[in-house]
């Protein structure tokens, strides 16, 4: 009886944490930012990143988004700019090779789900609101988001580079994730008999 009770508890816990995890289809997903240099927008694509997506609208408590971005892979379609972007004035890729994103809470708003997340770039962490659009598809789901950041919050291009006529402070991050069908949740281990 006691064993059965424990098993039931485990099962309940397992169910509660059942926001399914969706594998990210890397080739159909993109992580990029749109910045403005001398009045002209350019896009930087972060080619190398991992993301982990667990989401169930009815179980936001156990939903979460995580991403690790390797900033050496930034491609702005200009080798000179890519090289400049990696220097100490900007991302300082040698000292801070990765940026991370991790949700701390998830909430539903009238316009859709919002993740409150810690974004860490160049060693500086900022709590940001990350509203996203979730769409179930035949094969899985898509997640789309567009969030504006201030580059100075992360020490990107301070000092002389703070001049907005050269590089605007506002940078938009654009996320498009294509997700495969969730991996079947591992069946709760049968309690030891």
């Amino acid at each position: 009886m006691r064993t059965l009770f424990t098993a039931a508890l485990l099962l309940a816990a397992g169910t509660a944490a059942a926001a399914p995890t969706y594998p990210v289809l890397a080739t159909q997903s993109s992580l990029s930012f749109v910045a403005t240099q001398q009045g002209e927008k350019f896009t930087g694509v972060i080619r190398d990143f991992d993301a982990r997506v667990s989401y169930a609208p009815e179980d936001l408590a156990h939903s979460g988004l995580e991403a690790t971005m390797r900033l050496k892979s930034i491609d702005t379609k200009s080798p000179d700019r890519d090289q400049a972007i990696g220097t100490a004035d900007w991302f300082d890729v040698a000292r801070y090779p990765t940026a991370t994103f991790r949700t701390v809470a998830m909430r539903m708003t009238p316009t859709g789900p919002v993740a409150d997340a810690d974004l860490t770039i160049k060693g500086r962490t900022k709590r940001i609101a990350f509203p996203f659009a979730w769409k179930a598809t035949a094969g899985g789901a898509t997640l789309d988001a567009r969030v504006a950041l201030d580059r100075l919050d992360f020490g990107l291009g301070g000092g002389e580079w703070a001049d907005e006529s050269m590089v605007a402070h506002r940078v938009e991050v654009v996320v498009h994730l294509t997700l495969a069908a969730p991996v079947a949740a591992a069946p709760a281990k049968p309690a030891a008999h």
Binding site: G39, E40, P79, D80, R81
Partner: peptide, 13 residues
């Protein structure tokens, strides 16, 4: 070809 912006005196791109 270098992929740089082109702006005329901060006025027109």
């Amino acid at each position: 070809a270098a992929g740089f912006p082109l702006q005329w005196f901060h006025l027109v791109n």
